[in-house]
């Protein structure tokens, strides 16, 4: 990791479902590119943003690239803190099992696979926002 004094805490907030608009894909690309700058990156999924992590996405019928698999590469890019808001899931009739499993390999623990997704309630999400230096909204 970079020197802590030079490291800022970035929070990307995703609030749009994928495919209907370009927000979700753009956000993912910015996260991947931004990962090269070795900052402390977290990604939040609020409102329709939770649909970005749905398992079983199949875009064959709409002629668009299924980029849901790419979220599973985030661990390689050291983006290992994905926060999903419980209330946003519940409002949409979703439960945690509806989402993909996303893990990272912890190099400090012999590459043990650990979950990247953390489910947080609204008050925790609110706290997360106030703990970050930079908020990027999509």
């Amino acid at each position: 990791m970079a020197d802590e004094t030079n490291t800022k805490k970035f929070l990307y907030i995703n609030r749009k479902a994928p495919y209907g608009t370009v927000y979700a894909l753009e956000s993912l690309e910015v996260v991947l590119i931004g990962a090269a700058f070795e900052q402390d990156v977290s990604v939040a999924f609020v409102d329709d943003g939770v649909f970005q992590l749905m398992s079983g996405q199949d875009t064959a019928g709409i002629g668009m690239k299924n980029f849901s698999k790419t979220y599973r590469a985030l661990g390689d890019y050291e983006v290992r803190k994905l926060y999903v808001e419980r209330e946003s899931l519940a409002e949409r009739g979703l439960v945690s099992d509806d989402l993909m499993a996303i893990t990272y390999e912890d190099e400090n623990e012999d590459y043990a696979e650990k979950p990247s997704i953390h489910f947080v309630d609204r008050s925790e999400m609110t706290k997360l926002i106030s703990e970050h230096d930079v908020i990027l909204s999509f």
């Binding site: 991947l32 690239k65 698999k69 790419t70 590469a73 890019y77």
Partner: peptide
């Protein structure tokens, strides 16, 4: 095939090492 992206160079280096 697995992730639908080509890895950045540093990721390629890391994963090739592994």
């Amino acid at each position: 095939e697995e992730y639908q992206i080509a890895p950045a160079v540093r990721i390629l280096v890391k994963e090739m090492t592994k």
